[in-house]
Write a protein that binds this DNA or RNA. Structure first.
Length: 587
RNA sequence: GCCGUCUUAGCUCAAUUGGCAGAGCAAUUGAUUUGUAAUCAAUAGGUUGUUGGUUCGAUUCCGAUAGACGGCACCA
């Protein structure tokens, strides 16, 4: 048998496993390697190599190493939990982007924050024991017997395809149902930390029991772990909720949970942002409109919101008739479109609106400015002819690039394609999906496809930005709509004098102005670019007795030139006032 | 909405086993007139989120409730 590693060939008379191969090459490699790869498939070091192939070893610096280590750490944690809480039942325990978690049912026991330290200690113990991770393929019947005590594992086993081999991993006295792969032994797991507790529904379904999820993270070196923990601390310092308070941007009150108040500084920021947005859109052939906050129930019945979105709408009575506060701006825009007769020559018609919408979000979903119950969408609704689809999408992608690059934001795009229950012209839909896909490919940004995840009324592109905690938030969106034009019987007159249905595009770039402010607050760490900074210049007279008059004149001049200036005439030393300006992040 | 944690002065935080609620910053007043990242001092500031209970006595223990935070679910 001939095995190729890093371009070199090694010959063997019999089948060998990863350990033997690594040892043949280099003793240090055998100690360091945690797995190997053949044609993108990852194996444990103990796996046999069956035939001629090319092997790549996975070492701590390999990109796959982190998730293998963290997955193994979740097993180590599960072992420790079962040792401390023998009655616990285990759910899922995967590795994730920033570590791993394990979902556990502790029965009647309520796991406390302090218990995490106990579990960590137990993990250390098992780590020192250096228990080998042993993979074993079992039959379904065997698996059901091994995990008889754990209803969650039983449910998983019963759900597995009978043709697929069922693999288990054993370390010490602990055995878990798992596809793998794992590090060779628990002694590889030394530098880890249990981070937090959370509740999570079994299999992500509200109808199921909620298990206790424990998040943790694991590294190959103490230094990496410490750096990661330090980074987590630094992220918290950039949290827009903290900066928003410190810089006087916004506040939240118990009198209106989820309804943010913009403070003087935040209002300047918001106004600067939106007036820039308006200028940009006017320059790009958008007509700016404003539609009412509240409209009658009939409109929402026609739009379909009443049946699909009622739970999230705030309602009230006007003249004994039921009204709803708008959760979206589209019906308003549509009424504007319908207010006139349109010629095919007039299209595309682009209506832009900074629309204040209200949605009754679940209380547990609220989060600073990221998830609120009242927010401003930087919305636009464009009505086009079929033949204008390509150029309109191109126009939009360019616009998104322009706007995001102004802030230097990183993002990725997600394309959601046609679901089963889609409506409208399939050809138009396929064509538009193709156009969207092409546009995504051309853009310099990462994009992924969510097959079948589009709305029933049309495909959509979502623009996702990351916050300082690495959480992903949807900001921009482009949605093609083949539904509302039908529901509202929209039309334009074509060159033959016939009524033709236009295609409608919903789009928002910032998404929610509030969320976007949250994102850029964290992105800039509160130190906004000068054009957005609430206070741009602070004037500090060295000595009030001699310099105050001149400072006042300077402030007046700067104000005249349109700068946002503050005079700091506090009776304090220069150093104190400089420090104040720095803390307030005045450019 | 669900699981968990938290809520003390405007802000950031203390307060042994239940025994007079405390500090720094900010504020106010006074002194200092300052040349590059916190000048000194004094004063004021509180029904400990709200509410019910246990107790001679509750910031502390128990219950209810509101809100925030970390997740989950949700985000047609």
């Amino acid at each position: 048998m001939e095995i190729k590693v890093k371009g070199k060939k090694y010959a063997f008379n019999e089948q060998i496993n990863g350990f033997v191969l690594a040892k043949t090459i280099d003793a240090a490699l055998a100690k360091e390697a945690i797995g190997f790869k053949i044609k993108d498939k990852i194996y444990d070091m103990g796996e046999m190599i069956l035939k001629d192939c090319e092997v790549e070893f996975i070492v701590p610096t390999s990109k796959e190493a982190f998730s293998i280590l963290n997955h193994s750490t979740s097993h180590l944690m599960a072992e420790s939990i079962m040792s401390l809480f023998p009655n616990a039942k285990l759910g899922f325990g995967p590795s994730i982007e920033e570590g791993y978690y394990y979902d556990v049912d502790f029965g009647d026991y309520k796991l406390k924050e302090e218990d995490l330290a106990k579990i960590e200690k137990e993990m250390m113990k098992f780590s020192k024991n250096g228990e080998k991770f042993i993979r074993k393929i079992v039959s379904k019947q065997e698996a059901l017997e091994i995990f008889a005590a754990d209803p969650y594992k039983i449910e998983l086993i019963n759900g597995l395809d009978t043709n697929e081999p069922i693999s288990t991993y054993t370390q010490g006295n602990f055995v878990d149902l798992c596809f793998g792969t794992h590090v060779p032994s628990t002694s590889y797991i030394k530098h880890f930390k249990l981070l937090n507790l959370a509740g999570a529904y079994w299999r992500g379904d509200v109808k199921n029991k909620q298990l206790t999820r424990i998040y943790g993270v694991s590294f190959f070196t103490l230094e990496d772990l410490e750096n990661h923990l330090k980074m987590l601390e630094e992220r918290k310092l950039r949290d827009h909720k903290k900066l928003g308070k410190e810089l006087g941007l916004f506040m939240l009150s118990d009198y209106g949970p989820g309804f943010p108040f913009f403070l003087p500084n935040g209002t300047i920021l918001k106004n600067e942002l939106t007036s820039w947005w308006l200028k940009y859109h006017i320059a790009h052939d958008y007509m700016v409109i404003q539609t009412p906050i509240m409209l009658s129930k009939e409109l929402w019945i026609t739009s379909g919101h009443w049946s699909h979105y009622k739970e999230n709408m705030y309602t009230s009575k006007v003249d004994k008739k039921e009204f709803a506060i708008k959760p979206m701006n589209c019906p308003g825009s549509i009424l504007v479109y319908k207010n006139d007769l349109h010629s095919y020559k007039d299209l595309p018609l682009r209506y832009a609106e900074l629309g204040l919408v209200h949605r009754n979000e679940a209380s547990g979903a609220l989060n600073g400015l990221f998830r609120v119950r009242s927010f401003t969408q930087d919305d636009a609704h464009t009505f086009i002819r079929k033949d204008q689809l390509v150029s309109e999408i191109r126009h939009l992608i360019k616009l998104y690039d322009d706007i995001y690059s102004t802030f230097g934001l990183n993002y990725h795009i997600e394309l959601s394609t046609r679901p089963e229950n889609s409506i409208g012209d399939i050809e138009v839909r396929n064509e538009s999906e193709r156009i969207l896909k092409e546009a995504c490919k051309k853009s310099k940004h990462d994009f992924i496809i969510n097959p079948g995840d589009g709305a029933f009324y049309g495909p959509k592109l979502d623009f996702k930005l990351k916050d300082s905690m690495n959480r992903i938030w949807q900001c921009g969106t482009i949605q093609l709509d083949m539904n509302l034009p039908v529901r509202f019987d929209l039309s334009y007159i074509d060159e033959n004098g016939q009524k033709v249905r236009p295609i409608m595009i919903h789009r928002a770039v910032l998404g929610s102005v509030e969320r976007f402010i949250g994102i850029i607050t964290e992105h800039f760490g509160g130190a906004f670019p000068t054009w957005l900074a609430p206070v741009q210049i602070s004037v500090l007279p060295v000595n009030n007795q001699y310099h105050l008059d001149y400072a006042k004149k300077l402030v007046k001049d700067l104000l005249k030139h349109g700068f946002r200036v503050k005079l700091d005439e506090a009776n304090e030393k220069l150093g104190f006032r400089l420090r104040n300006s720095q803390i307030n992040k005045i450019p």
